[in-house]
Amino acid sequence: MKIAFSATSDSLDAALDPRFGRAKGFLVVDLDQDRSEFIDNHQNLNAAQGAGIQAAETVSRSGAGALVTGHCGPKAFRALAASGIRIYHTDATTVAEALARYREGKLVEVGAADVEGHWV
């Protein structure tokens, strides 16, 4: 099972990026193999629109079955749900902390977007 975290850099100690669509990148942690891969999301930072949808596509392609992030808007939520990816929100400050909470079963899966969509 792989889990994607919105992260500011390629490290478990990296800050968890509270944004999803415009996160710096995604740290995809493979729980079974105990290794991780960082996927850059830089091109989405300045996207005029559709950053959440594009990011959902990126996470979907990574093979992750779950996403841990700060917030997630309605379009990103729809795309993630269509990909069968489970979504967890957290206010953890680092990826490692968020991962620990996930392992302890302290993260609650969300069933809807928690922030409004943004328009250009």
């Binding site: 629109q49 559709g50 949808i53 594009q54 959902a56 596509e57 979907s60 379009k75 729809r78 795309a79 269509a82 990909s83 069968g84």
Partner: peptide, 13 residues
């Protein structure tokens, strides 16, 4: 990004 294909399924926004 008005149309995306996720897990080989199309999704329209």
């Amino acid at each position: 990004h008005a149309i995306v294909v996720l897990k080989e399924r199309p999704l329209v926004f």
